[in-house]
Design a binder for these strands. Structure first.
Length: 531
RNA sequence: GCCCCCGUCGUCUAGCCUGGCCAAGGACACCGCCCUUUCACGGCGGCGACACGAGUUCAAAUCUCGUCGGGGGUACCA
């Protein structure tokens, strides 16, 4: 892979070299094409694309494909194009298209052309490019490299079953390649609407992949692919390669699920005498059973938007997804976007699939949350408080920031703010039974003791001259130490009384934030519930 | 069935191209200890992998072949 990248660089200099030599010897006109082609492919800017079909939300795998393309473009100071592959009119929706835009924007993966942006090679919706495809299909038909196929769905199914039983490599035998005009007329009279198929070549097709290496595909394993549906709408394999060429895409970076489509697309391009982009098939993102992550099997569990809602930061998602299949060296895990742009390289993308591990995502997410300054973190967390009805309008911003500060590094997701802090906003919480059992005690005797401690603490907190951290801390500890009470026991008992929980921020932070009145009330309530 | 791809700790991976530095390194997770008013953070430690079998070689995780395993595709989806 390193060699191939190297190869590419060498080529460009060779190209320039040839230009000089050739310019001296050849007629300008005849050179013109050659030079331009060479320039477009080798010397020109890198152009990559993301080509989702708007049949659902953007999922983790799609986000990674988008990121790899985006990084590749940025790294090479090229262009990133967003093309919408919506030739499946039955399944494509506008809503889904906008959802994809939104998810991409949230991730910060901006694009140079396509989507709702215009560009020199538009339109960027395949549904609006039909005339372009028609032109190429016409050419294919005229040169007899494609033909009409009148087989019905039922017939095709029959052929497939037979082929399977015969252990044949192909499931369509090209029977409509040479139909007599009588038969065609008969079919038309029957009202059959033909599809158009491409004639696959009988010579091997070379598939050169930047990640997987090159191999020759035996043409015997390829069948005459449908390129235009009976309703006149062209198919993915045709539109994809035509647009890649038309849009001057230099590198097609996509998931390995498309590996088997590549020879078909190459065959189409060859039939049209179009020059090819380079291909790079990145390994799949898998679930924990090793299957490809897909909308169909995993639902919105794999939707980028779901992670957004759950309180994951885009930089965490990006960092996480970048390390799925790609690595820089044997130590670095945390990469800023700038570093990714700088360090990303297809040569360091592996060949095998990677399992989506939410634990690692969480770890990265907490890392990036902790990197946020308190003010930004507060902004990020406010919507989650609001969604839970814990706050309405932001009246006391300063206090919110103090709460966030007290919570410190205890957030794996932004949403974690809710269970971590809800007691700051409401008295309506339960005492966690596990916690009370452990710290308040099970027996009447122990409960009695806890009650006594809480009552004393209540008295002490009522009496302190000031209600600041230092005063509170020293008075409480004076009490525990002089009375031979374990600090932990006192603190945890009080924590449960104030929050219902056995975990959380430093207790004295909570006390100060709650304020004297609230603390005394809650202590009283706890004492009552204990007796 | 057929075609294609892949195979290092539970997971992400480094190492593989250019065989010896690898009794295989890092990270996440998990477990233990320390720190500590709890939880988390942090520190220290532990568990844990070259799918298998042949071959080549003085030497193989690294090269070759085979087996097995996993995945993807197999549509008038993309």
């Amino acid at each position: 892979m390193l060699i191939q990248t190297q190869h590419q660089i060498n080529w460009s200099s060779i190209g320039q070299f040839l230009f000089v030599i050739a310019g001296q010897k050849c007629k300008k006109d005849s050179m013109h094409n050659t030079v331009n082609d060479t320039k477009a492919n080798v010397n020109g800017e890198v152009r990559v694309r993301m080509a989702p079909s708007p049949t659902g939300f953007l999922h983790i795998g799609g986000a990674r494909t988008a990121l790899f393309n985006w990084l590749y473009a940025k790294h090479h100071h090229g262009k990133f194009i967003l093309r919408i592959d919506d030739t499946d009119t039955a399944r494509s929706t506008d809503e889904s298209m906008h959802e994809i835009y939104e998810a991409m924007q949230w991730l910060g993966l901006d694009w140079d052309e396509g989507g709702e942006k215009d560009g020199p090679y538009g339109p960027y919706l395949q549904s609006k490019r039909k005339d372009i495809y028609d032109r190429y299909v016409k050419e294919l038909l005229a040169s007899e490299k494609a033909y009409h196929c009148y087989c019905t769905q039922e017939e095709l199914e029959g052929i497939r079953t037979e082929a399977r039983e015969a252990k044949s490599v192909r499931s369509y035998d090209g029977r409509c390649r040479e139909l007599s005009s009588e038969v065609i007329e008969k079919y038309i009279a029957e009202g059959r609407k033909p599809t158009i198929r491409i004639k696959m070549p009988d010579t091997p097709i070379l598939v050169d992949d930047l990640i997987l290496g090159s191999r020759n595909i035996d043409p015997a394993t390829l069948e005459d692919e449908v390129i235009v549906r009976f309703n006149g709408m062209p198919n993915y394999n045709l539109t994809s390669i035509i647009d890649d060429v038309e849009m001057k895409i230099t590198h097609v970076i996509r998931g390995t699920e498309h590996l088997n489509n590549t020879p078909k697309q190459i065959a189409i391009a060859n039939a049209l005498e179009l020059s090819l982009p380079k291909f790079a098939h990145i390994p799949l993102v898998l679930d924990d059973t090793g299957r490809k992550l897909s909308k169909r099997h995993h639902g919105d569990l794999v939707a980028v938007n779901r992670y957004r809602e759950q309180g994951y930061l885009p930089q965490a998602m990006l960092n996480f997804v970048a390390r799925l299949g790609w690595s820089y060296d044997d130590k670095q895990e945390i990469f800023s976007l700038e570093e990714l742009i700088d360090k990303f390289d297809l040569a360091r993308v592996g060949k095998s699939g990677s399992v989506f591990d939410i634990k690692k995502l969480e770890w990265l997410n907490s890392h990036y949350i902790n990197e946020l300054d308190v003010s930004t973190r507060t902004d990020a967390v406010i919507p989650y408080w609001q969604a839970e009805g814990l706050i309405d309008t932001i009246e006391n911003r300063a206090k919110l920031e103090k709460i966030v500060e007290a919570v410190g590094e205890r957030l794996n997701t932004l949403k974690d703010i809710v269970p971590q802090t809800s007691y700051f906003f409401t008295q309506d919480f339960e005492y966690d039974p596990k916690a009370t059992k452990k710290w308040w005690g099970n027996s009447d005797e122990k409960k009695q003791k806890t009650c006594e401690i809480l009552t004393n603490l209540s008295q002490i907190l009522a009496d302190t001259p000031d209600f600041d951290l230092e005063t509170i801390e020293s008075s409480v500890w004076k009490y525990t130490d002089e009375n031979d009470i374990k600090r932990v026991a006192a603190m945890q008992s009080m924590r449960i009384a104030l929050t219902g929980l056995s975990f959380g921020p430093s207790l004295f932070d909570i006390v100060v934030l709650l304020g004297r009145e609230e603390v005394l009330e809650r202590l009283h309530r706890a004492v009552v519930s204990l007796t």
